[in-house]
């Protein structure tokens, strides 16, 4: 790395012309290769971000020109929009239950399957399947039928002597069908945990066993601390995703009943593409960004108390 192979190459290679030397210059070559991303970044990220910030201070319905309204969108949101508060409450409720349950399940199953056997490989791929197909429209539509009044869930409840519930029609339960669907897709987190578990040296467990620790104790005192950076990573990524949940709610409950599943992203979509209230929806997007950034910062802050980095300790 320190040998500066570039300089050597230039002198020794048979590209001698001035032109080819210029083209092979590391700055030119570097920007040549990252050009697709750089252009995309400017066109599809930077420009939209500033447009969105500008629009959030305007009233805009796509047909007439944006009209500057100052902070009005933000003021309206916080003082005069009960649905805004409703959608925040619903989303936070969902994040609080769905994310820890999903990550917890992923960790538990990854630990349970942490053994070298063909059966474990097979089980892992079976558990991974829901993650792979869970985002599809097909599965969302099936999910709706599973929780319908005559669906398999209620049939099963009847078999064990319980009374069926109107899962999708009752504001108390509808959101749980969506939480269940999210938790069902714990597979991809499980795969990440499985890779993390392989990194933990077997001798830690052996030492603990010699000291008389039970399986449970070694899980608490060895597995969890060693895996905490991976848990942290999973938690952050899953949280960001959960805040943006849209497709499932759109397909399964459409926000209902009684707005009990009106996720923030769904409400934003409705504002933008049903009411064409683009200025207000842009302001909502910025509030979402701030909420996500704040919550992520909080989790990052808390990480110093529970995430254990081996390299730091040395």
């Amino acid at each position: 790395m320190k040998k500066a192979p570039e300089a050597k190459g230039k002198n020794k290679g048979f590209i001698s012309g001035k032109w080819s030397q210029l083209v092979d210059n590391q700055n030119i070559a570097g920007y040549f290769f990252i050009m697709p991303w750089l252009l995309g970044f400017l066109l599809f990220t930077i420009m939209p971000i500033f447009t969105s910030l500008f629009l959030s201070f305007t009233s805009y319905n796509l047909t007439t020109n944006p009209k500057w309204v100052g902070m009005q969108n933000y003021v309206r949101m916080f003082t005069d929009d009960p649905l805004f508060y409703k959608s925040i409450t619903v989303t936070i409720y969902y994040v609080i239950f769905a994310v820890p349950l999903k990550v917890g399940f992923a960790l538990m199953i990854a630990f349970l399957l942490h053994r070298r056997s063909r059966a474990a490989d097979f089980y892992r791929s079976v558990f991974y399947l829901p993650s792979l197909i869970g985002g599809s429209v097909a599965v969302a539509l099936i999910w709706k039928d599973i929780f319908s009044i005559n669906g398999p869930i209620n049939s099963f409840l009847e078999v064990i002597g319980l009374k069926g519930v109107q899962w999708l029609g009752d504001p108390r339960y509808a959101i749980w069908t969506l939480i269940a669907m999210t938790v069902w897709q714990f597979g991809s987190s499980m795969i990440i945990f499985a890779a993390g578990l392989k990194q933990i040296p077997e001798m830690y467990y052996e030492a603990a066993r010699i000291d008389g620790a039970s399986r449970f104790h070694s899980f608490i005192y060895i597995t969890l601390p060693s895996l905490s950076p991976v848990i942290f990573f999973n938690l952050v990524m899953q949280m960001i995703n959960a805040f943006m949940t849209f497709t499932q709610a759109f397909l399964i409950t459409l926000g209902g009943p009684l707005d009990s599943t009106l996720f923030y992203a769904l409400y934003l979509y409705r504002r933008a593409f049903a009411y064409f209230d683009m200025g207000y929806a842009s302001a909502m997007a910025w509030v979402l960004l701030i909420i996500i950034a704040a919550v992520t910062a909080l989790v990052f802050k808390s990480s110093q108390y529970w995430v254990y980095y081996e390299s730091k300790e040395k």
């Binding site: 970044f41 971000i49 969105s52 960001i240 933008a272 683009m278 997007a285």
Partner: peptide, 17 residues
């Protein structure tokens, strides 16, 4: 940073473009 950026924020301006 863009890896962590919520897609919702880009949705509307991209649609407009």
């Amino acid at each position: 940073v863009t890896l962590m950026l919520p897609g919702q924020i880009l949705l509307i301006p991209q649609y407009i473009v």
